[in-house]
Design a protein around this nucleic acid. Structure first.
Lengths: 190, 190
DNA sequence: TATATACTTGAGTGATCACTCAATAAAGCA
DNA sequence: TGCTTTATTGAGTGATCACTCAAGTATATA
């Protein structure tokens, strides 16, 4: 007896993710979302409840996509090569809404306001860091990386370098690809 | 014949810098500024012209302070040790408005909107990068770093690592001091 | 002291913010 | 074909945004 929505919810979330990723939380207005999603306010609030609720969905989608891309690299190339290729992959794509990481952008924008979305961003980053640590441990058991290192320490540093790389990639006149190569090379020397 | 302002302009700019640094551009409202600066709208606009104009002054102050701190380290410890100590100094101070770099926060927030302040932030970052390159070159002529390296390449990577460190330092539950130590140690191995 | 010149005040500007809701339209079931 | 239920519409909500300006106040010079 009900009426079905005439939109694809997953598609709407993906489009919101791109918009939020590029413009940030404060930089994205409801009007922007209405334009991109082709929804009137009433439909929007019926579907998602609030701007923040949609941002949360968008950020979760972003984080899931990142982990999926990482896992795909592992499937195809193994742990170490995946870690080596991931930085370049993150910045070497012009079709992406932004070079910088959406999680770090959210953290930097909202942390000072103690906004719940900042804590959420941090949790996604933590999950990603855990994934990196697993891969470092995996590379160690393959014999690709010296077992003397603590994989958690390696992951912490790797993620920090990655975040720095992606901030640098947002700049004009900074050869971020060179930095990505250096990060990859430094992993080979562990 | 004129009347003197009853405020210290430099002090107002410093207080604005702290507020903008912590809360960001969109996250800082005129009401916030009026409260911190103890100024009514009329005085504010007579003194600074606009929120953006004050932000520009605040960011210039921020950049100048950073360079001054770096130069002070060089005076006291020489080029290499200055580069080694700088990362820890940037994050190991609880009195600071934010751990992350104001320039990178501004860049990430406003780049997508092509806001002039984003370009300005990038220029300050470029100037800082130049300063780092000078210090790397200086350390090379001291014999502290292998001459085989290109100081500009070292500076680019160093700044990227520094930006990543300072994003990491903004996170809860991330031992950024350990990362700072690693960055310092890696410079000793050049 | 008188005057000219700036600085300060604070209510008020239109625009935009995230969001609401009553009215209307459409789809599944009888 | 009704009937029920949900989706969609879009004008409108109060709040807040950056900012203005006429009126009042204080100060350095004459």
């Amino acid at each position: 007896m009900p009426r079905k929505p005439n939109y694809d919810r997953a598609d709407l979330i993906n489009r919101s993710r791109d918009l939020f990723w590029r413009r940030g939380w404060a930089g994205t207005s409801l009007k922007d979302l209405e334009a991109v999603l082709q929804m009137k306010p009433g439909s929007f609030y019926a579907a998602f409840g609030s701007k923040d609720a949609l941002f949360e969905l968008a950020m979760a989608q972003y984080a899931a996509d990142g982990l999926a891309r990482l896992n795909a690299l592992v499937e195809n190339h193994g742990a170490l090569k995946a870690l080596q290729r991931f930085p370049m992959m993150a910045i070497d794509n012009d079709d992406v809404p932004a070079k910088a990481c959406m999680l770090s952008k959210t953290l930097l924008e909202l942390q000072a306001h103690k906004h719940p979305l900042a804590k959420e961003a941090n949790q996604h980053l933590l999950r990603m860091e855990g994934g990196f640590a697993d891969l470092f441990a995996q590379a160690q058991s393959c014999g690709d990386i010296d077992e003397a290192h603590d994989p958690k320490v390696l992951a912490r540093r790797y993620q920090s370098d990655l975040l720095g790389l992606r901030v640098s990639a947002e700049r004009e006149g900074c050869d971020a690809r060179a930095i990505a190569t250096e990060i990859a090379d430094s992993l080979a020397r562990l």
